[in-house]
Design a protein around this nucleic acid. Sequence first.
DNA 1: GCCAACGTTGGC
DNA 2: GCCAACGTTGGC
Length: 141
Amino acid sequence: MRTFLLKTEPSEYAFADLVRDGVAPWTGVANPAALIALRSASKGDQALIYHTGKDKAVVGLGEFVSNPYPDPARAERTSDGLPKHAVLDVRALKPARTPVTLGAMKSDPRFAAFALVKQPRLSVMLVPPALDKAIRAMGGL
DNA sequence: GCCAACGTTGGC
DNA sequence: GCCAACGTTGGC
């Protein structure tokens, strides 16, 4: 089981919406690096859900309940003829007891090399196990 | 195939 | 609301 971080703008789709929906396809990933990360996920992997905008914090935990599959809403193909956009179904597991803020991660030297901090605009990334543990400990997840 | 112009993301 | 960082687009 690996853990990924998924960014979302809460005014568009918040963790609370995922809790309400139970399971939802994680759509809208267009950035190539984010798509590579998303395609590397599999059923059973977990996802730290991060709110951009005003919150700027990991606010909850989810779990992938499918493997990546082509986004049925997007017809674009790569030059190889493969579907360009991928989607996974995510199930809400639980909210963070305490949101883990970007500020808290930035001020913690363990996170210095973390993609969330180092690579602006990347919306899907693998979370290294040590940082996954740290975030879960900090957030009560 | 380069790269200038433009668009988007997301923290500040 | 601003703008830095990065992607994408399109003319050449």
